[in-house]
Simulated assay, not measured.
Amino acid sequence: MVTLDTSITPIRSLKMMTVTGNGEFDQYFSIPEIQAQSFVVVDTLEDRGEYTFSPQAWYSPGQLHLRQPQDRTWQVMILSQGGEPFSAPGSYGIRTFNNNVRTQIDAINKVLTVHYSGAFQIGVYWRPGMQAQVIEWADVTFPSPITTYERPLIFLNAVDYMMVGNFSVKGSPGNWTGFRLKQWANKGAHGSAADDYMNIRWYCSSYQAPSTPAGQYGASVRDAANNRTFVTTANLSLLNSQPSATGFIQAGDPITGGGGYYAPSQQMPWTGNTADFVLANALFSLTNIIQTTQPLRPNFGGFLPGNRSILQMYCDNGSGINPLTANGRTLFASRPMKPL
Rank of each mutant, 00 (worst) to 15 (best):
P210V: 00
Q56I: 11
I249L: 14
Q70P: 10
G129P: 01
M198H: 04
W58I: 07
T177Y: 11
Y203R: 13
A280R: 00
R297L: 06
A224F: 14
I249A: 09
V111P: 09
Q294C: 04
A280C: 01
Y197R: 12
L156G: 07
V101T: 14
A88Q: 05
Y28P: 02
N307Q: 03
S265N: 06
Q81S: 05
W58F: 10
T293C: 00
F29I: 06
I249R: 11
T148E: 03
S309H: 06
N98W: 15
A234F: 14
D223W: 07
F179T: 02
G306C: 03
L79G: 12
N288L: 15
L153M: 12
F86T: 03
A107V: 10
N317A: 07
A194Y: 09
P128K: 01
Q70A: 08
T271N: 02
I289W: 08
P264G: 05
G21K: 00
I290Y: 03
G188Q: 07
S172W: 00
L311C: 07
P305E: 03
M268I: 02
W137N: 05
F25I: 14
F277T: 00
N22C: 11
D316P: 10
K170D: 05
L311S: 13
L112F: 11
S87H: 13
N99C: 13
E46M: 00
